[in-house]
Simulated scan of single mutants.
Amino acid sequence: MNLPNNQTISLSAAAICGGLIAIAIFYFQHYLGLEPCYLCITQRVFVIAVGVIFLVSGLHNPAVTGQRIYAGLATLTAFGGSFFSIKQLWLQGLPEDQVPACGPPVDYLFDAFSASEAISMLLRGDGNCAEVQWQLLGISMPGWVLVSFIALAIVGLFQLLRK
């Protein structure tokens, strides 16, 4: 059985990341009107970062060592994004009296605070992150994003360990 080459896999993974971001922006945010919370935005940044790593890998199409470096970076970035998906799932599972207070809108964060303070607030999340706005098959959006990060990490690991 002939497996696809690394370039095809990398470009396909990049396209999947692009599709995930397009769905998040055009379907969930604009069509359904769901505003992303702080952790949602953080997860989007990680999806974009994984996608960019795979895109650069596919366009560069390096030899084995370079491919392993790209694969390692993509895998680590996917694991980083997974952390924030898990954090949001944890917030969604908290009893109502333990949910942190809601913060200001994201646009206001970058207007009122320094970039480092705003990014720190994005990474922490707030009460808005605990709200389940959408589900499919009983799994909330950060659960599906976690599934996506796990799949992307598996792709990265496959390319990292591939002979």
Score class of each variant (00 low, 15 high):
Gln7Glu: 15
Ile9Gly: 05
Leu11Ala: 11
Leu11Arg: 13
Ser12Thr: 15
Ala14Trp: 10
Ile16Phe: 10
Ile16Tyr: 07
Gly18Asn: 09
Gly19Tyr: 06
Leu20Val: 05
Ile23Phe: 15
Phe26Ala: 11
Phe28Thr: 01
Tyr31Phe: 13
Leu34Gly: 00
Leu39Gln: 06
Gln43Asn: 15
Phe46Gln: 01
Gly51Glu: 01
Phe54Lys: 04
Phe54Gln: 04
Val56Ser: 02
Val56Lys: 05
His60Tyr: 13
Val64Glu: 11
Ala74Asp: 10
Phe79Arg: 03
Gly81Trp: 10
Gly81Ser: 06
Phe84Thr: 01
Leu91Gly: 03
Leu91Thr: 01
Gln92Val: 02
Gln92His: 07
Gly93Ser: 13
Leu94Asp: 04
Leu94Pro: 05
Gly103Cys: 04
Leu109Gln: 14
Asp111Pro: 02
Phe113Tyr: 15
Ala118Gln: 09
Ser120Asp: 13
Leu123Cys: 11
Leu123His: 09
Arg124Phe: 13
Arg124Glu: 15
Asp126Ser: 07
Asp126Ile: 02
Val132Lys: 12
Val132Glu: 10
Trp134Glu: 01
Gln135Ala: 04
Gln135Val: 10
Leu137Asn: 09
Ser140Met: 04
Gly143Ile: 02
Val147Glu: 00
Ser148Glu: 02
Ser148Gly: 11
Leu152Trp: 07
Ile154Gln: 05
Gln159Arg: 12
Leu160Cys: 00
